[in-house]
């Protein structure tokens, strides 16, 4: 009888093991260099979130939610944050939030330029796409092994895993967003003598904003999920609450972590979705393209509603 295991002669596992070991041995400085900004960014965000008094944080977040996604989301945000605090996992929730916030900044810094590059150069996209396919079909916790080998254990290596997992959707959506810009409009750009940079900044990016924000929503949710999973390699935050609960067979404790995670995820989802759908409307607010304008110039938004 043939058994599938008889065929198990390919020592792929050993090859990968050897490859990763070789990388971590020879490229140590590279990984340290990667780690450094993440570590500091994370420390800063975490410190900030932890030090602001709870009521102020609730107010601030609700205000931001209001501006980005409207009143009902603001209300939901306030209530959810209070519930999280009441569950007694405020500090852990803030750590998770710091993980996500930092990851999003890094993802935006990497993902949007790579997405733009992919959209404007088919050869780049032909290289990037299969990589994204592999990244997105690999189960998330499979990332953890190489991450541990290359970066060690703890919160910062965990954050690396979060970023790696969360960046693909943003690259994809940025790429699609730019490619989907109406061909005739891009042509109008050419016809009126736009150079490559003007084409990007005057036409492609502004018109791709709604799609890119859709990608941001995906990235935020992926980061949320991953920020929990990385508790397995010793990262702090809400994931750790769940892990501890499970480890101690303390279902209640684990459930508290779970509830807080769900609430946080819903806040982030609603806020980013609100941003994306609002920017989709062709109105005068979208003119000034989105996020920061809406954060700082809310009156422009009110103008449109009337």
């Amino acid at each position: 009888m043939f058994d599938a295991n008889d065929l198990a002669v390919l020592p792929v596992a050993r090859w990968i093991q050897a490859g990763v070991e070789w990388l971590s041995y020879n490229f140590r400085p590279v990984f340290i260099a990667i780690k450094w900004p993440i570590e500091n960014g994370l420390a800063l965000t975490d410190a900030a979130l932890q030090s602001v008094p709870f009521p102020i944080t609730v107010l601030l977040f609700s205000a931001v939610a209001w501006k980005l996604a409207g009143r009902s989301t603001a209300l939901f945000t306030a209530v959810s944050l209070v519930v999280i605090a009441a569950l007694g996992v405020w500090s852990e929730a803030m750590t998770t939030l710091a993980l996500i916030a930092t990851a999003i900044v890094v993802c935006a810094v990497i993902g949007i330029p790579v997405g733009i590059w992919s959209a404007r150069n088919d050869r780049v996209w032909n290289v990037v796409r299969p990589i994204l396919d592999i990244m997105q079909t690999t189960p998330t916790f499979v990332y953890l092994i190489p991450v541990v080998m290359l970066f060690g254990v703890g919160t910062v290596p965990g954050e690396v895993a979060v970023i790696v997992t969360a960046v693909p959707p943003l690259i994809r959506f940025t790429n699609i967003g730019i490619r989907q810009v109406d061909k005739e409009i891009v042509e109008a750009g050419h016809a009126f003598g736009a150079d490559s940079r003007q084409l990007l900044w005057e036409i492609q990016l502004p018109l791709a904003v709604p799609t890119i924000l859709g990608g941001l929503n995906q990235t935020v949710l992926t980061a949320m999920v991953m920020s929990v999973v990385i508790a397995m390699i010793g990262a702090e935050g809400l994931g750790l609450v769940v892990m501890q609960g499970l480890g101690r067979l303390d279902v209640g404790h684990a459930a508290i972590g779970g509830i807080a995670i769900v609430l946080l995820a819903m806040i982030l989802d609603r806020v980013t979705q609100g941003m994306a759908s609002r920017s989709g409307r062709p109105n005068r607010a979208a003119v000034k393209a989105g996020f920061w304008a809406r954060l700082f110039f809310p009156h422009k938004l009110e103008e449109i509603k009337t």
Binding site: D182, E184, I185, E187, A188, A191, E202, I203, P206, L207, P282, A286, V287, A289
Partner: peptide, 10 residues
């Protein structure tokens, strides 16, 4: 242009 090709966000 035939279909105007105006920038919808401007």
């Amino acid at each position: 242009f035939q279909h105007f090709a105006l920038l919808p966000n401007r």
